[in-house]
Write a protein that binds this DNA or RNA. Structure first.
Length: 582
RNA sequence: GCGCCGAUAGUGUAGCGGUUAUCACUAGGCGUUGCCAACGCCUAAACUCGGGUUCGAUUCCCGAUCGGCGCACCA
């Protein structure tokens, strides 16, 4: 078994990840998070909130998972997310119908499915494999479609990303943030894509969890006030140039921005925060890189895009996060489709003074003379330059193909000094988009170690205490009342403190240690006869397998400190060297 | 979607056209002054589903589902 299989098998057996609907034969692309997987996921999401909500002052919202059609027309998912397909009637091979006519029609995207099919028939295009006849063209859309309400009045789609929830709430979010930039909203939630062939477990799902932030910034100033905090952090940048060379380059974020490798501070800052977050949940730094999208790979509207990629055994480098500068693409698209202004009025530090020509046509005279055309004449007059008005000669205008003359007396004008206090700006969007399920799988993969102890394989998930679904195991040395009663008291005390604690009496003590190693429990507390005689318990560390004796009354405090990373096992008490009994 | 391969207790497996489907680990119970999957006794647990061939199918055939790999797809 390779590591991938070992990790998957462990995750299934121990209750992290289960293929969904197994009782009814299952369905590809759906997974359940089991009793250990769900808390692992929850804890990772909470750390994400720590980084992208609390620390940054961003707003977390929750939008419906079903969206109405208009959203996805504007976002481009309805057209861009669906492909016209055709299949061979002989060999059943499936093709992109628009690809087959590319050499005949330059922009097949503009054609309807019927038109593409007509084109295929007229040009007698057959199956590229076997020459067989092709079926009519049908649409495959990656979005799940559903009906809203009875009848077929309203079409709904399960959202293919959470991002749109933030974009379409832009006006209310802007008001919530008191009409000023920058601000950001985030969402953690399910997204749905009807993948053609989901594979590789939790890496490509039909229902998955995304954590996305949409950070709205002033397009004229892409610096970041907190950039200094991350400028000295070193990371491996796999830039466009580095990809040409085939080797990632290590440097600080400050250097990356200075050299123009990352487009600007704001993007670099959130790449850095992403980096910190990934390390905080237990992604291995030596199996993590940030790869810049190549020019042809980047969405046409994106200014710059960096993917966090992790190395997974057998699967290679897998994208788990994308951080992109999406510019004003999304807001512009929704503004156009909804006909709602989605810009922000940005105040200048100092009002700018500017002289402005105000033209006042004399409508009392123009009205009777030009009747219905008077309005158009007025507009034409207002559009004239000061030079034309000042000349004192007859003003010639062409209105609806007719040349008319107006004496200058009918137009008055003056130069006014006006103060400009700001301008309308469509914000640009920095979007960090996290695939939570992929991150969870990565944490499992990168935490997994199998070492040899006394000739036996010991499987360990080296979870960081901050993500471990079980933080402490309380174990009576044996299942006897005199030991289990004090152990249960400790269990209750630790649970009262809010720790995630498991209690286990089955089998031998060694077996229980190993069982807890396998599910990544960082510490075990063992109640033994010394507890009764000397008032001590044993704390055992998962990674080093070291044990220390600690006074019973200190155990909760010491565990709190150890889980918080403030106390190391060897400093927690008297080291015990366990002797193996023959 | 297409092609190739596979599917037996929780896990890994053996096996057969016909008795009670093999083994190990795991899991549960009891005992054990016992400290890194210790030991003893006891217990539980499986032929993916549907159809066909056959007196009889877990075994052979077809299909479905799920999984692995390759192709295609991957905003």
């Amino acid at each position: 078994m390779d590591k991938n299989e070992l990790v998957n098998e462990l995750a299934r057996r121990r209750g992290f990840l289960w293929p969904a609907f197994e009782l009814y034969g299952g369905a590809a692309g759906f997974y359940d998070y089991g009793p250990l997987g769900a808390p692992l996921k929850r804890r990772i999401e909470d750390i994400w909130r720590q980084y992208f909500v609390i620390s940054e002052g961003f707003a977390e919202i929750e939008a419906p998972t079903i969206g109405v059609e208009g959203i996805y027309q504007a976002s481009g998912h309805l057209s861009g997310f669906s492909d016209p397909l055709t299949s061979c009637k002989e060999c059943k091979e499936v093709y992109r119908a628009d690809h087959l006519i590319k050499h005949i029609i330059e922009v097949p995207d503009a054609l309807s499915n019927d038109e593409i099919y007509k084109c295929i028939q007229e040009n007698e295009i057959g199956c590229p494999e076997c020459g067989g006849e092709l079926s009519s063209v049908y649409e495959f859309n990656l979005m799940f479609k559903t009906m809203i309400g009875p009848g077929n009045k309203m079409t709904g789609y399960l959202r293919p990303e959470t991002a749109q929830g933030m974009f379409i709430n832009f006006p209310r979010l802007l008001r919530y943030f008191r009409d000023s930039l920058p601000f950001a909203a985030v969402q953690i939630g399910k997204s749905f894509r009807n993948e053609i062939s989901p594979r590789q477990g939790v890496i490509r799902l039909r229902e998955f969890t995304q954590a996305e932030a949409e950070i709205f910034i002033d397009p004229r100033d892409k610096s970041h006030p907190r950039f200094a905090e991350v400028a000295d952090i070193k990371m491996k940048f796999y830039s466009q140039a580095a990809q040409e060379r085939g080797e990632a380059e290590e440097m600080t974020f400050g250097e990356a921005v200075e050299r123009g490798i990352v487009a600007h501070q704001a993007l670099a800052y959130y790449v850095a925060r992403t980096y910190q977050f990934l390390l905080a949940v237990g992604v291995a730094p030596d199996k993590l890189r940030f790869r810049q999208h190549k020019v042809d790979e980047m969405a046409h509207y994106a200014a710059d895009c960096w993917d966090a990629e992790v190395f997974l055994d057998r699967l290679g480098w897998i994208e788990i996060v994308g951080v992109a500068d999406r510019t004003d693409f999304d807001l512009k698209a929704h503004a156009q489709a909804s006909k709602v202004n989605l810009s922000v009025f940005v105040h200048y530090d100092q009002p700018v003074k500017r002289s402005k020509m105000v033209v006042k046509p004399d409508f009392k005279a123009l009205g009777p003379r030009f009747k219905a055309k008077a309005k158009a004449v007025g507009e034409a007059l207002k559009a004239l330059s000061p030079e034309e008005l000042k000349s004192g000669e007859m003003i010639r205008l062409t209105i609806e193909g007719e040349t008319i003359e107006i004496e200058p007396a009918l137009v008055s004008f003056e130069s006014v000094e006006e103060e400009i206090r700001g301008e309308e700006v469509i914000p640009h969007v920095i979007e960090p988009s996290f695939g939570i399920d992929r991150i969870i799988y990565t944490v499992l993969d990168h935490s997994f170690y199998a070492d040899e102890v006394d000739g036996e394989t010991r499987a360990v998930l080296r979870f960081l205490p901050a993500v471990a679904p079980i933080e402490v195991a309380v174990l009576p040395l044996m299942d006897r009342k005199e030991l289990s009663d004090p152990a249960k008291a400790i269990l209750q005390e630790l649970r009262t403190r809010g720790m995630r604690v498991d209690y286990d009496t089955s089998g031998s003590i060694g077996r229980r240690y190993r069982r807890n190693d396998e599910i990544g429990t960082p510490f075990a507390v063992t109640v033994d006869y010394d507890t009764l005689e000397q008032g001590t318990v044993t704390i055992r560390d998962r990674d080093s397998m070291q044990q220390v004796k600690v006074p019973r009354w200190q155990v909760a405090d010491k565990l709190t400190a150890m889980l918080g990373g403030l106390l190391k096992i060897q400093d927690a008490g008297d080291l015990v060297m366990p002797g193996k009994k023959e």
